[in-house]
Each structure stands twice: as C-alpha cells, then as structure tokens.
Computed example of a mutant assay.
Amino acid sequence: MDDIEAFWQRAQQHARLVGMPSVLGVNPLATLRPPAWSFGATAEHADGLLQLVLDGTKTATATALWEFEAEGEALPSVGTLSIITDGAGVPRALLGVTRVRTVPFDEVDEAHARAEGERDRTLASWREIHEQFFTDYASHGRGFAPDMPVVLEEFEVLYSEPVER
C-alpha cells in the first residue's frame, strides 16, 4: 500500500466517511480514493500553502478555468474530496469542497481573498499574487487576462496529519 492509499484509509476512518455497511449501506465517498495534489506550482508553494490550510488560515483556493480545460478535468463541486500533499508528495490533509463558483479574475471579492489566507489577506495582494502565478504557471499559453475565468473553491479540512519539521 502506498503512502497516499494508507493516508486515505486513515482519513476515511477519522472523517467518518466509512460507516457500517450492513446497516447504512456503502458510503459512495468511501468507494473511490480522491485525487491527491498540492497547492501552488513548486515544492515551496505547496509547503507554505499547506501550512496555511493546517493552521486554519487558508479555507479557499482559486484555479484558472483554463487549467481544468487543459487537463481535461471536471470542475469541482460541493462535496468533492481531495487529498492535499506537501511539497515532497506526502499526504497531509483531506479536504471537502463546500462552495464553488466561477468568476472573472477582476470580479474576485475581498471575502475570497481573505479566505485564501496569503500575505496580508487583502484583495490587492491577492490580485498581485495570483496575476503573477497565473502568468508564470497556470495560463497554458493563454497569458493572463483581467477577465479570465477563475474557479473559486471554499473547503473544510476533514482530516489532517501534522507536518514533521
């Protein structure tokens, strides 16, 4: 069993995703392991953003819609689960999506910027950080545009394991 599968087994138990099948039936959330991924584009991004999640500071994220399209991935929806890894690929948290919306970059609001938890948690700093990120890593050749569609997710931590320092 690999590290992610072992984490998933522990997370299902702690997050109470697995019930007593003979009484309650099989919980569909427990049948398939969710995707494992990390925040950001570098190991440093992944570690820093993961720590914000584990501290409870980061409860939202933003992804260019173009990224989902380029990867052929379905958009997340309420209830979507994800295993979040650190920069070394070690699973650390199980997240559940609580809200999803797609808006133009220039219509992201202050509340979402605060929920992302980065730097000073203002809309101005969110825009600066994300314009740079989308320009450098996530435009898939399209470049940055102020009206580019951005998928905004809010999430809750269902289970986590501490980062060893």
Rank of each mutant, 00 (worst) to 15 (best):
T102I: 15
A93I: 02
D120R: 02
E128S: 09
H130Q: 10
E118M: 01
P104S: 14
S125Q: 06
R101K: 14
V103L: 14
H112P: 06
G89Y: 07
S125G: 00
V103M: 13
P104G: 10
A88V: 15
D109I: 07
F133W: 05
I129Y: 15
A115M: 09
A113F: 01
Q132F: 03
R101N: 12
G96W: 02
V100N: 10
G87T: 12
A115G: 07
T98I: 08
H130S: 11
G117V: 13
L95E: 10
V90M: 09
F134C: 06
R119P: 00
G87W: 11
E107H: 13
V103C: 08
E118L: 12
V100A: 11
E128I: 04
E118I: 08
G87K: 02
A113H: 00
E116S: 05
T122E: 07
G87H: 09
R114D: 01
E107D: 13
R101T: 15
P104K: 09
D120I: 11
S125R: 13
R121N: 06
A88L: 11
A113L: 01
E128H: 05
A124F: 11
F133P: 07
V103G: 13
R99Y: 10
E116G: 03
E107I: 11
F105A: 06
H130M: 04
R99T: 05
E118H: 04
L95F: 08
I129Q: 12
V100F: 01
A111F: 00
L123P: 06
A93N: 09
E116R: 05
V108E: 02
G87A: 10
G96I: 11
R92P: 09
G117P: 03
E110R: 01
D109W: 00
P91K: 12
F105C: 05
A115T: 06
V90W: 05
R92L: 01
D106C: 12
R121I: 05
V100S: 09
L94W: 04
V108Y: 02
A124T: 15
T122N: 04
T102C: 14
I129V: 15
G89I: 08
A124H: 08
R114G: 05
E107A: 14
V103N: 13
G87E: 15
G87D: 14
R99D: 15
R101A: 14
L95A: 09
V97Y: 03
L94C: 11
A93Q: 07
L123K: 05
D120W: 12
